[in-house]
């Protein structure tokens, strides 16, 4: 019974003294003598760019020589809000892992601290992890309590977005999805290439096409071309062919075109200027066939074939193309 009472009494005393130690403000204790504690820290490589919610880990290894020992109740408490000049600094200890290894000359404590950032700012600002104060006790003299200061680590907290920035993609926030390499230029180039290809194909269709299924196709000269192509090669056909071409000229000019108003026609239809010589040849042929049989023309011995080529040239002019000219007869 007495033994049981003694144990109970000792426990009460120890717990009371422990409460007394806790109640001691660590910062008021004297610093431990130099050489008693050696420290080694593993700090995060990244020192800037932290923002709200980030967790920063820091590992501290303390070797405390005997007869001093760490009062483990002085280890930082999870969830404790640190203040500076009365204001919460916004760095909170999220987790702490502590392990120790005792050896002959002392004890090695391995402390893994995980801080979480609970602050933010419109501009980057410095904050500190720590300092943390630990209390040591001299086991040879239990009344001697000292403190050891784990140095603080300065980091910079950066805002979630650049102050005043409107384009969210310019922010380097981790809350945004990863920015991918932009391929706009490549896509633009691809689209242009496809467009050029399509236009080239259309142009080829337009040049070689014979039917009225594209804009400015099926013009009056295109119709004349198809008409002449179907005609047999005889004198009556020649008259029909010339008449068809005259009709095309008249419809293009919206008036009757004669040799004496050709300049006016070319002025109003400059596309046809490329074949001015061929047009004069045509009117020479028309003159010989329709008005003056003794006159000479310069289109060669196969007028219908020449007319076919000429009408194709006119068709190109009608479509705004530059025709190939051939100043010799057929």
């Amino acid at each position: 019974m007495t033994k049981y009472f003694r144990v109970l009494l000792l426990t009460a005393i120890l717990s009371t003294s422990s409460q007394q130690v806790l109640a001691i403000d660590s910062q008021t204790l004297p610093d431990v003598d130099e050489g008693v504690v050696s420290i080694n820290t593993i700090d995060p490589y990244k020192r800037v760019g932290y923002t709200i919610g980030d967790v920063i880990e820091r590992e501290v290894t303390l070797t405390i020589n005997a007869p001093y020992k760490l009062i483990e109740t002085s280890l930082p408490i999870v969830g404790y809000e640190k203040r500076y000049r009365g204001k919460v600094i916004g760095i909170e200890l999220k987790n702490i892992e502590h392990s120790k290894k005792e050896h002959k000359d002392g004890t090695t404590h391995h402390i893994k601290l995980a801080y979480q950032v609970f602050t933010n700012s419109v501009v980057a600002k410095n904050v500190a992890l720590g300092p943390e104060y630990l209390n040591l006790i001299n086991t040879n003299n239990k009344k001697q309590l000292v403190k050891y200061r784990i140095p603080s680590l300065d980091i910079a907290v950066s805002p979630l977005s650049i102050f005043g920035q409107v384009k969210v993609e310019n922010n380097m926030s981790q809350f945004l999805e990863p920015l991918l390499i932009k391929d706009d230029q490549e896509r633009k180039g691809l689209n242009v290439a496809i467009g050029v290809l399509v236009l080239s194909l259309l142009a080829l269709l337009y040049i070689f096409g014979k039917h009225a299924w594209l804009p400015r196709m099926g013009g009056t000269f295109a119709r004349a071309y198809r008409t002449i192509k179907k005609l047999p090669n005889n004198e009556a056909s020649l008259k029909k062919a010339i008449s068809a071409v005259h009709l095309s000229f008249n419809q293009t000019a919206k008036m009757s075109v004669f040799n004496d108003n050709l300049d006016e026609f070319l002025k109003n239809n400059p596309n046809f200027s490329h074949i001015k010589y061929e047009i004069s040849q045509f009117f020479g042929l028309s003159r010989q066939v329709y008005f003056e049989p003794n006159a000479q023309h310069s289109v060669g011995n196969n007028p219908i074939q020449w007319l076919l080529k000429f009408t194709k040239q006119c068709r190109d002019c009608e479509r705004g193309l530059i025709p190939t000219t051939n100043k010799t007869g057929v």
Binding site: F258, N259, D260, R287, F291, E292, P293, N294, A295
Partner: peptide, 12 residues
Amino acid sequence: NRNAVLPDDIHA
């Protein structure tokens, strides 16, 4: 200097 009348002659 022509031997036949053309529309141009009439226009003239």
